[in-house]
């Protein structure tokens, strides 16, 4: 069991990193990686939402949808759960931690359309994970996202001061530098722990 959890964690953070090897969550990854501070805040929020979403969706899937033979409604049910969850987190942060709330701004509601969140929930179902494994995969997947976005934010802060062709202004140069970071992450691929 413990072995399983460690291998899931390392897989989600390094080997099959959500961004650099599965391409889940690229939009916020490119959108909010201007500064290391915002990237860290976004990463933390995603870790929280992904962990909670994995747990809640597992319960809903196993105690409501599967007993009622409604497994084909999974996508619909999960996206609604995630949307409600993000709304809830938003209200909670507004009341409890207003400083973080204002720092995240528009990106907080946008977590709903982050494909990493829906992706992790669907992958939990696809891989037949049990409750603990789902929760682990959710949290560590979020940590992998956070690692990627924070690393990339520091790369981008340097890219701003370098010279590149004018037509690569904006997204293209980000994508090309992300490609190089992805190449670094390829070093982990094929690594087997147990």
């Amino acid at each position: 069991m413990l072995q399983n959890i460690i291998s899931i964690s390392l897989g989600a953070i390094l080997i099959n990193n959500f961004i650099f090897s599965q391409f889940l969550g690229c939009c916020p990854f490119l959108g909010c990686s201007n500064k290391v501070d915002t990237a860290t805040g976004m990463g933390l929020a995603v870790v929280f939402v992904m962990g909670l979403a994995s747990a809640i969706c597992w319960v809903i899937d196993h105690y409501i949808l599967i007993p009622l033979n409604l497994a084909f409604l999974e996508t619909l049910a999960f996206i609604l759960v995630i949307a409600a969850l993000v709304q809830f987190v938003e209200m909670f942060l507004k009341k409890a931690v207003p400083s973080l709330y204002s720092a995240l701004g528009i990106y907080l509601p946008l977590i709903t359309t982050n494909c990493a969140v829906l992706g992790v929930v669907l992958l939990n179902v696809q891989n037949n994970y049990n409750f603990i494994e789902s929760l682990t995969y959710g949290i560590t997947g979020g940590l992998g996202f956070m690692l990627a976005i924070v690393l990339f934010a520091s790369v981008r802060e340097r890219v701003q001061f370098s010279e590149y062709p004018e037509c690569f202004e904006g997204f293209p140069i980000c994508l090309v530098s992300a490609a190089l970071v992805a190449m670094a992450f390829m070093g982990f691929s094929g690594m087997k722990i147990f």
Partner: peptide, 8 residues
């Protein structure tokens, strides 16, 4: 064919 190629 790997993620690198997609980004690039």
């Amino acid at each position: 064919n790997l993620p690198f190629g997609g980004f690039l």
